[in-house]
């Protein structure tokens, strides 16, 4: 209603007052993100707990080989790069993924900034870059999963239960939810669960970003008079980046 701006005495219980000076949508987005942060904390706590209670490798990192008896050194697991078969590139690819996600977070901030200036062209341009960044990250993750599942050239010998049958000295190549060539079964299971759950968040984020991109391009927010939707979706997108910062540290560095 156009008249609300001229009313001087607003009743406290009549609505129109924003708690924390944030709009309803933004506030709810913050609390949703808080609850989502609890979910991810639960997953990361599980990871760290299982890792700290698993046998560690205390030998020389130079002579490290994969074994199902101890937790692997992450640098030795994530050392592949597309197109560089057999070349050791520890953490290079995940570094690229981190870089892509941070950049797409920056383009999202720029989209929000353009929205605050009612700059439709700017919003459309930066939203498009954000969507491209999101797709690039998802593509990288698909490649990483594929490599992780198919494994390296050298098999790891271990005892596994395959299709209900106990197998001694089985040549393990790659990874699945039951066993993997990199370390204890929980290692790959946690990798799939945590990066998968994050990847699904990225996927949802890209999906929402695409909708916002089309809405902005069609002038919906210009007609509405504000670009608050871009800010709300921006909060979600930054949260996805934030979670990746933690996943990166816990999974790939420590």
């Amino acid at each position: 209603m156009a008249t609300t701006a001229t009313v001087n005495k607003r009743s406290l219980w009549g609505g129109g007052i924003e708690p924390f000076k944030a709009s309803y949508g933004k506030l709810m987005m913050w609390f949703f993100l808080l609850s989502d942060a609890f979910t991810f904390s639960g997953l990361l706590i599980t990871y760290a707990f299982l890792r700290w209670s698993a046998p560690a490798y205390t030998g020389d990192p130079e002579t490290f080989t994969f074994s199902t008896q101890y937790w692997p050194i992450p640098e030795k697991v994530y050392e592949a790069f597309p197109g560089l078969h057999g070349v050791e590139a520890p953490l290079y690819f995940v570094g690229l993924m981190t870089f892509i996600l941070i950049l797409s977070s920056v383009t999202m901030v720029l989209a929000v900034e353009a929205g605050q200036r009612m700059d439709k062209k700017g919003v459309v341009k930066w939203m498009l870059w954000t969507v491209i960044g999101g797709f690039a990250f998802l593509g990288c993750q698909a490649w990483e999963w594929s490599h992780f599942i198919h494994g390296t050239d050298i098999a790891t010998i271990g005892d596994v239960v395959k299709n209900g049958i106990w197998m001694d000295n089985y040549e393990i190549i790659g990874a699945n939810l039951s066993f993997n060539q990199y370390g204890p079964p929980t290692f790959a299971a946690l990798f799939f669960f945590i990066t998968g759950f994050h990847g699904f968040h990225v996927f949802s984020g890209v999906f929402i970003n695409v909708i916002i991109f089309f809405n902005a391009a069609n002038g919906m927010y210009e007609r509405r008079g504000h670009y608050e939707m871009v800010e709300k979706v921006g909060l979600y997108w930054h949260f996805v980046d934030l979670v990746w910062v933690f996943v990166f540290t816990f999974f790939y560095l420590i």
């Binding site: 707990f49 299982l50 700290w52 209670s53 046998p55 490798y57 030998g59 074994s67 101890y70």
Partner: peptide, 21 residues
């Protein structure tokens, strides 16, 4: 959970670190 419980469970289970496979 991580620092105290994780370490305690490891000790209680008698999990030993491995220096060579």
């Amino acid at each position: 959970l991580v620092n105290l419980e994780g370490g305690a469970i490891k000790e209680a289970r008698g999990v030993v670190d491995v220096d060579q496979p």
